[in-house]
């Protein structure tokens, strides 16, 4: 039993850091530019596809990772300059719809370029296999490395935001947009950079998840809504919130998925019914969490410090 719990904790952590990479960008864009960007998942998909294609053609992950990052980052900045810029002063409804249109476009464009069949890319050779980090629990090296990279990026992002001038501007922008403008900073450039940074992180998440799952059209939407849960639970505009929110959501979701079937089978004898019920109920869990947070702590559990 402990072995099962430990393995599930690791799984939850892995989902958590992946969500963090997506949520970090989303929460910054949300907090600084006030934009609800539904198309954030598309950047995740673009990163995954670019890396998978390069990995398939060249067989080299040393080329694939930069290619994925480049594609996601460039796509992000392009989207910011062509579309997002015009949405900053609009209400949320317009933002939701325009970025929804963007999802449709991105999905179809990728289908046109790559086809409808999912791509299955192999694990980078050095990271294949399992390792017994905890005695008796062999765990996928690749999943462990996702956790490692994710945590390293979290630290890097913390340093960037706390210790650099860009970070100072981002922090200021998240809490008070006008102050930044008053400082004489080129706010347009700052916005483009922040959007690009968010896209880069989303793209990196996509690159890493590609070999684990399969790279397919629609993968972005599957994870997007959960990313919104993270942002809301953590607190809009707060990187710290995104981090803790992601870990909480990742672990809650994984644990519910792990334990719900057992509980349900205690109540319902038919396995098919019990498992369907537990699949549904465990998926509901994080949304319930989000609704509760919105009702009782609308600013989120870890709001941006002002």
């Amino acid at each position: 039993m402990t072995v099962f719990v430990l393995e599930q904790l690791l799984n939850g952590l892995q989902l958590g850091v992946t969500l963090f990479l997506l949520a970090a960008g989303l929460t910054l864009i949300f907090g600084i530019m006030g934009i609800i960007n539904l198309a954030h998942g598309s950047l995740y998909m673009i990163g995954a596809y670019a890396a998978a294609l390069v990995a398939r053609e060249t067989g080299s992950w040393l080329l694939a990772v930069p290619a994925g990052l480049l594609a996601a980052g460039a796509a992000g900045m392009l989207i910011e300059m062509v579309i997002m810029r015009r949405l900053y002063d609009r209400d949320h409804l317009d933002q939701v719809l325009a970025t929804y249109g963007l999802i449709l476009f991105c999905n179809e464009l990728v289908t046109l370029l790559v086809g409808r069949q999912p791509m299955f890319v192999g694990i980078p050779p050095g990271l294949a296999g399992a390792i017994e980090l905890i005695p008796g629990v062999p765990y996928s090296i690749y999943r462990l490395s996702i956790i490692g990279f994710g945590l390293a990026l979290a630290v890097g992002l913390y340093l960037l935001i706390q210790k650099t001038r860009l970070g100072m501007l981002i922090r200021a922008g998240a809490t008070n947009r006008d102050t930044v403008r008053a400082l004489g900073v080129d706010i347009r450039l700052l916005y483009t950079l922040v959007f690009g940074l968010g896209a880069l992180l989303a793209g990196f998440a996509g690159i890493m998840m590609g070999p684990l799952l399969s790279v397919q059209v629609g993968m972005g939407e599957q994870i997007l809504i959960m990313t919104f849960v993270v942002v809301v639970v953590g607190g809009v505009g707060s990187i710290r919130g995104a981090f803790f929110g992601a870990i909480i959501v990742g672990i809650v979701d994984t644990m519910l998925r792990g334990f719900m079937p057992g509980w349900m089978r205690g109540i319902i004898s038919d396995t098919a019914q019990a498992d369907a019920l537990s699949a549904g109920l465990s998926s509901m869990g994080v949304y319930l969490l989000m609704a509760l947070v919105l009702l009782f702590r609308p600013q989120g559990l870890f709001p941006a410090r002002t």
Partner: peptide, 16 residues
């Protein structure tokens, strides 16, 4: 976000 959350809960409820 909260209307989305409720809709998602119902969505998964019917899946269940």
């Amino acid at each position: 976000m909260i209307t989305l959350a409720f809709a998602q809960m119902l969505y998964f409820f019917f899946i269940a």
